[in-house]
Design a binder for these strands. Structure first.
Lengths: 368, 368
DNA sequence: ATGAAAGCGCTAACAC
DNA sequence: GTGTTAGCGCTTTCAT
């Protein structure tokens, strides 16, 4: 035994604490130093000689010591946890409507958070206190918050920073937001279709009132008014995949059938393609097609379909950066409102003169 | 003022505590009771008169009191947090390879956890202590853990329950696991294809060594041996979408070209379909196709493709139930190892006599 | 039926 | 440089 005896006596010497797991006191005792020294050594604080630091680290390692996250959180007021919430449609607690979009966005957000030492907690958009208040959050990311979102209000009232994916409707007091310029995106697509020869462009849109749907639809209507085209659109509840197929069918069954369609939601491309086949319409010869999607399947459909990407990875990353900057009160480099450009991936379905499509010979396999 | 004065004096009466947020002491003072009474009243414990309980609740509400999750966690040793980890491939921190599968599974898991008062924390499969040990977990769900997974070992050593999606390879000491019977699923598909007239069935598989890929591939090889067919398969790194398209092409370019293919990964269906078109092969007349996928796009491809569903929602739910049972030491009703049946969704691509496909008249739209 | 007091394990301020 | 001390906000005996 070293000089351990001179330090404060605790349970640690009598008995291990929590179920045999070593606590900071056990480490201190075993290393023959005080708990402060242990804390400082392990956290790289204080001005300890490297020898001490090293020694403490070794002892901690040997004992398999892991600091208690709960205690640290209580003491410092920071948990390193960020909430992630998705607006729900209907009764399902989690309707990740735009599947690929959400998955990509969440993936990027998770990575970005991790890089800065934070982890993401998935939470429901309902304000069930018993869940939200049971987890210590440093801040929250809200995807597509509804107008007057109760969750957001509550969080803000608690003094927590909130950053939203999608510009907040009304006067929702978010700390910052990131979004695309949906109106510009729609106008761009309509122009693209018109340039490809479309005379009457239809829209497949949603019945929900979220900002994305609303902005996109009004942009479409405005474009129609400007161009002098009668709007041709069908609405359906975006969270219901079957309804999408039906709506696509309805759109192409109309007497004023459009010769080009833009679909706002991910599955619209395949649904419209299927509907077009049913009516014997060739794409792109009889019908031009574009849809908003992050899915890669549209690269290999017959024909490949032009898609609009909302760049979910960039959005997820940006949202998290803004939030953590707010949490840590770092000067955010950019503006508090960030607009991420969209990307139109042009494929055969929206080009009147499709690229040469011949049966290509088997390519020399690069790998085997 | 009521009898508040007789209770313990604290900062609470001098100053609000954390940035004006009410603490339990503030509530106690305002309600004229002790903090014990507040705690009991709010948590439904003790034997308090309903009047007191009600009164305390009102005061707490009025003050906007929210208990501190950190303090509760420290005191009780339970955080209500469950870790969710996905094995990573390559260098990316999060390669949710089977997109739809993961999204569905995570969604179900999140819901199931929420129903029981828990929330999910997304964590990386790397054993970076600085993240894992910074969050107080009650247990962890591990998706497809690798053999000798260091994360799992570490967690188990800490005494935390770990439940895995996918049976653990080797002697990984998980608390419980849930999985499909992948071998039976593959054999079922091969029989299905053979019954549809396939003479030579090919496999599109992965180069990774995870359990799913391994079991499925060996089942295929065993089936071939039993039937007396030469194996015809191509491998590729499953996390790389481009490699999948190339591998599909390679498979159909072989001199011993198969007349039926099963693809183990989600995008294989569209990739194989595209490759078949390039070689002028009609599906299902010249080539039968099945792939493992949770995606709904295969219902509307031309032709619709038969898919195997691994039932990720059932798996996600089961995993979480088992884990929470373990956390709460509830007697788990079922076995500690649960096998979830798969479902073969038969569509045109795997039937020699495809269902009648005529141009259907516009159906009467049910909604408008 | 209700209250006082003792910590949960850690960090930070301040002695020495 | 290193140790002592005072809590972070709550739950939980135990005493009244």
């Amino acid at each position: 035994m070293t000089a351990a005896g001179k330090h404060q006596v605790s349970r640690a010497q009598t008995r291990g604490n929590r179920q045999g797991r070593a606590g900071i006191r056990d480490v201190a005792a075993a290393a023959g130093v005080s708990i402060t020294t242990v804390s400082d050594a392990l956290n790289g604080k204080g001005r300890l000689p490297d020898a001490t630091r090293q020694h403490v680290r070794e002892v901690a390692d040997r004992l398999g010591y892991r600091p208690s996250a709960a205690a640290r959180t209580l003491r410092t007021g920071k948990s390193g946890l960020i909430g992630l919430t998705v607006t729900t449609y209907g009764n399902e607690p989690f309707t990740f409507t735009e599947f690929a979009y959400f998955a990509e966005m969440a993936r990027a957000a998770t990575s970005a958070a991790l890089d800065r030492g934070y982890a993401l907690v998935i939470l429901p958009a309902t304000s069930r206190h018993d869940v939200w208040s049971n987890v210590a959050l440093d801040g929250t990311v809200v995807i597509d918050p509804s107008d007057q979102d109760p969750v957001v209000s509550e969080l803000v009232r608690q003094g927590l920073p909130v950053v939203s994916d999608g510009r907040p409707a009304g006067s929702l007091p978010v700390t910052a937001w990131v979004d695309n310029d949906h109106e510009a995106a729609v106008l761009g697509i309509l122009d693209h279709l018109a340039a490809a020869g479309a005379r009457r462009i239809g829209l497949l849109t949603g019945t929900t009132t979220d900002t994305y749907t609303r902005l996109s639809t009004t942009a479409y209507l405005r474009w129609c008014r400007r161009i002098g085209q009668d709007p041709v659109y069908e609405e359906y509840p975006a969270h219901d995949p079957c309804a999408g197929a039906v709506a696509a069918d309805r759109l192409l069954a109309r007497p004023d059938r459009p010769d080009a369609v833009y679909g706002l939601f991910d599955p619209n491309g395949t649904d419209l393609l299927a509907a077009a086949r049913r009516y014997g319409l060739r794409v792109p010869e009889d019908l031009l097609l574009v849809c908003c999607s992050e899915s890669t399947v549209y690269a290999t459909t017959e024909p490949p379909i032009t898609t609009l990407s909302l760049k979910p990875r960039r959005i997820g990353t940006a949202v998290v950066q803004l939030l953590i900057d707010a949490i840590e009160s770092v000067e955010t480099t950019g503006p508090i409102e960030q607009v991420i450009p969209t990307e139109l991936i042009v494929r055969t379905s929206s080009q009147r003169r499709p690229p040469r499509r011949t049966v290509s010979p088997p390519r020399p396999s690069g790998q085997g």
